[in-house]
Every structure is written in structure tokens, then in C-alpha cells.
Design a protein around this nucleic acid. Structure first.
Lengths: 136, 136
DNA sequence: TATTGTTATACTCTATAACTATA
DNA sequence: TATAGTTATAGAGTATAACAATA
């Protein structure tokens, strides 16, 4: 079939994102974590006592949608909430959460490395800076 | 906030894809087309008498999900169906569809050019080949 | 036996509006 | 007055299973 679409960087960007996201999801499935769960765990791990609102802003997730997401992580025993003042609550990883987060990071780092290996050498080092420029 | 995520190519890939897709959607909105609608119109334009199933395979869209998509385009008067045999139907652009497709292509090409301009010069030419390697 | 087009449905993800309580 | 957390809900987008008709 004649298909001019893959020559559009925007189209290939979407297809590449879909393909890699699908694969990472499969690899995280044994941990019973979605990608966004792993992202949240990593951010909480790096920023103890971060609030749900701040996480949402950083990850481009609406406050309202953080509620069920954090509830799932809390119900799974991975995070805990500590009141900072009367209205804010700081998030932190539990011991189980820290362990799960480490496992997720190992999977992600392996995945990222393998992903980069698929990119032909001359282009490899340019991928991250190019992508970065498109959303930062 | 400490955030190691943007240094993961896979994460930046997803963020870049989301950001650019959101912008292209805004630009296509005046035509009352979604991105996938534009993709379908372009493919039909390049491949007269293509079938719904073949389109789905090319675009990674399930047969079942092509039905409401094509119905919308047909109801909008952009495509028409011609029986190829007893069970397959060839798709083609109507005159209105050809016009709409041209407008969409103009918007997309302008968008793609502006998107590439945002990528610093030394990285620009490497983006498409790098992305291509990740999903093809 | 495989494929096309289709229906129905469920599930996830996301967006929006509204409400309360507090800073 | 702005912000944090929450609830409820609606809309996309996608996945799955099943079916009839035809190749």
C-alpha cells in the first residue's frame, strides 16, 4: 500500500511512542504496575513529602485523576500519606513501595537501553535532545 | 522538584508525542477532523479502492473500530464505498473528501515543518530515522 | 478455512464541573 | 482569593468476542 505517513516525523513519533509504550507495559505487568504508576513511584521516591497536586502538575495529570491512581498505590501498600498541614498531605514510599520502585527502575532502565540499541548508532545520541526540544 | 524521568528517552518520547498530538489536534479542529481521520483520508486518497480491513492493518486499528470511524467520514460526505465483490468494499474520496484531504495535508505539512524547526539544527535530521527504527 | 464487515460491549484514560476545607 | 483534596460524570479511545456472509 502507498503510505506517505511514516515520512511525517509527527506520525512516526506517535507510532514509536505507542509501540514502545506497549512493550514497556508488558514488562511492567509482572509487577502489577502501569507506566504511570512507575512514574509516580519514582517521583515520590525522589521527592519525599511531595503532594498529589505537585505530582499532577509535574506529570501533566489532572488533580482529579490523581485520586484513584494514588488510591490504588495506597491500597497496594506502596505509598503512605502524612498530613503536612490541615489541607496538604505529603506522599512517601513504604518499604514495600521502595522495593517495588527499585524493581520498576531496573526494568525501565533495561528497557530504555534496549530501545536505544535499536536506533542506528549515528542517530542514537540525537534522539533524547531532539525529543526534549519537542515538549519542554 | 527532582525529576529523573525526562532523561529516559522512552518517557520523553511519550511526552513529546502527547504534546505534538495535542497541538495538531487543535489545528485540525477547524476542519472537524481528528488526526486519525486525516490519516485515513490521506491513505484512501493514495490508495483508491482500499478496503477498511487493509486500512486498519496499515494504521494498527482494529477492524471493529474502523466501522464508526468510516461511518463518520461517510456521513460527512468525505468518502464513499463501492462494492468490489460480494463482501469487500473499496473506499474512495468524494470531491468534498479530496478537498478536505488537501486542506488537512496543508495543515499537517505546515505543522510538521514547524515542529522540526523546534528541534536544534544538529539533531534535526536524525529525528525521523531514529523514530522510524523504533516502530518499523 | 480464512477474511470482510458488522454489532455489542467493556475497559481504560482523560476532561470537566462542582464542592469542602484550608492556606 | 488561591489551593488541596475529593466526588461524580461524561467522553474519547481501544480491546474483545461473536456473528453472518463471502472468498
Amino acid at each position: 500500500m502507498r503510505d506517505p505517513l511514516p515520512d511525517f516525523p509527527g506520525y512516526s513519533l506517535r507510532r514509536a511512542a505507542n509501540a514502545t509504550a506497549a512493550e514497556l507495559s508488558l514488562r511492567l505487568a509482572p509487577l502489577e504496575l502501569r507506566q504511570v504508576d512507575a512514574s509516580v513511584l519514582i517521583l515520590i521516591g525522589e521527592n519525599p513529602d511531595v503532594t498529589a497536586s505537585a505530582l499532577g502538575r509535574q506529570l501533566d495529570i489532572q488533580r482529579a485523576n490523581m485520586v484513584p491512581l494514588l488510591k490504588r498505590l495506597e491500597d497496594a501498600g506502596l505509598i503512605e500519606r502524612n498530613p503536612l498541614d490541615g489541607k496538604s498531605q505529603g506522599l512517601a514510599l513504604t518499604a514495600t513501595g521502595k522495593d517495588k520502585c527499585k524493581q520498576a527502575q531496573a526494568i525501565i532502565e533495561k528497557f530504555e537501553a534496549e530501545m536505544l540499541e535499536r536506533v542506528p548508532e549515528p542517530h542514537r545520541q540525537h534522539l533524547l535532545p531532539a525529543l526534549y526540544a519537542l515538549w519542554q
